[in-house]
């Protein structure tokens, strides 16, 4: 059967579980806080899940918060919170600021 979607992985073969964990980094907490602060008005959990599920498998395989970042930007553009052009401009601006600060 080929109808199983990539994120729907219960029962699939996979390697051993690594039981270690680490504290979330500030930017990872920020990603989560943005979702929570936007709330259901602008970023419903089910909408975000759908945006995550719609990622290509290679993007879905990114680490958790990286995957969230990509899906959130896609969702916000789709919902019209900002345009792709506005996003590209803001990314360039922040990247420049980060480089200057370094």
């Amino acid at each position: 059967m080929t109808d199983r979607r990539y994120h729907d992985m219960g029962g699939e073969p996979a390697g051993p579980v690594d039981p270690s964990t680490h504290e979330a980094e500030p930017w990872q907490k920020l990603i989560t806080a943005l979702r929570n602060a936007l709330g259901d008005d602008y970023c419903r959990v089910d909408e975000l899940r759908r945006a995550l599920e719609d990622l290509r498998p290679e993007d879905y395989d990114l680490p958790y918060f990286e995957r969230w970042a990509v899906a959130m930007v896609n969702l916000f553009c789709e919902k019209g919170l900002f345009s792709r052009a506005e996003w590209d401009a803001k990314m360039a601006e922040v990247r420049r600021k980060v480089q200057e600060a370094a």
């Binding site: 990872q28 990314m91 990247r95």
Partner: peptide, 20 residues
């Protein structure tokens, strides 16, 4: 660091646009 930049950019843009 690219994803960190994305997080910061989202924060700034969403604030500027008045969503949060």
């Amino acid at each position: 660091s690219e994803y960190e930049i994305m997080a910061l950019a989202m924060r700034e843009l969403l604030i500027e646009k008045g969503y949060v």
